[in-house]
Amino acid sequence: MKKMFALVSACALALSLTACSGGGSAQAPNNNNAGKGDSFPNETITLVCPFSAGGGTDIGARNMATALSADLGVNVVVENQTGSGGWVAWTDLITGDYDDGYTIGLINHNFVFGELDPENPRDYNLDDVQVLCNQVVDYDVLAIRANETRFTDIDSFIEYAKSNPILISAQATGITDGESTKAEWFNKTFGTQITVIPVDGASDSRGMFLAGDTDILFGSISDVNTAYQNGEMKLLCQFAEERSEFIPEVPTVEEATGEKLVAFAARGYFYPNGVPADKVEFMTNALLKSMERSDYIENMAALGLELDNTSGEAYAELLNSQMETRLSIWG
């Protein structure tokens, strides 16, 4: 009897959860677009996010899922397959049987540098996937604490760092990591003494920086913008071609020092190689169209992310663009 009670209450809970999810993210819209029967997307599309739920990539994908679902009239779900900095998901997508075009992977610039990893060289590169289009570019910045007294701008920082050791944190110490690359570039170009402390994630970097354990922070605009607007951090320069519209008053590194370095994170979508060309084209166009939806743009702007719609070959080039810089920095 009591068991029955427990079961009934579990069912009730299940129902209440379902009720709560009504109008939830990518709910299946009624498939009533007339005549859709056998045209390409007529069942659920899966976006495979190689990083954990709640991360920047994941939230971007979920916004995309909502927009894409509304456009295509099919259910679009996000699945998180984490592990090894994305390589568990990427390996599965490349080697598995996902040629029907119903599974789209998320890709970022880390994918490109995988084969250069000195400890764990990866077997795959851009030749093993067909990129569709980009979603976000997030340029990197150099931040200092608001109450920093040892240096106040990029010149005084470089002067200081030439004669004093500077600590930064990064997620790895080699060529695969953007922060370490910037540190190496500063050391090589200006003769600074920056040492890298490896940490587990961007939020650890932030904590150590705020606590004063590290001296400066290499972060992305979306990471630091709120703290910057609140007056908790100052930005010395941005590593972009031209000033971002989010922080138009911060100079680019080229304007500030005369030396050029462009560094950013880009993330977008890809298909495994086996997906036929017509589906690749269809999906690229669908993604680009979804990115024009006003609700999508609004949601993404709230996250402080710069939207980008580079697609196809140009996107592959964008992903590859930092490769040469990094190779030359690391010799």
Binding site: L7, A10, C11, A14, L17, T18, S21
Partner: peptide, 9 residues
């Protein structure tokens, strides 16, 4: 119950 909880919800 398992199907409702894990798959549907």
């Amino acid at each position: 119950i398992c199907y409702v909880a894990f798959v549907i919800i």
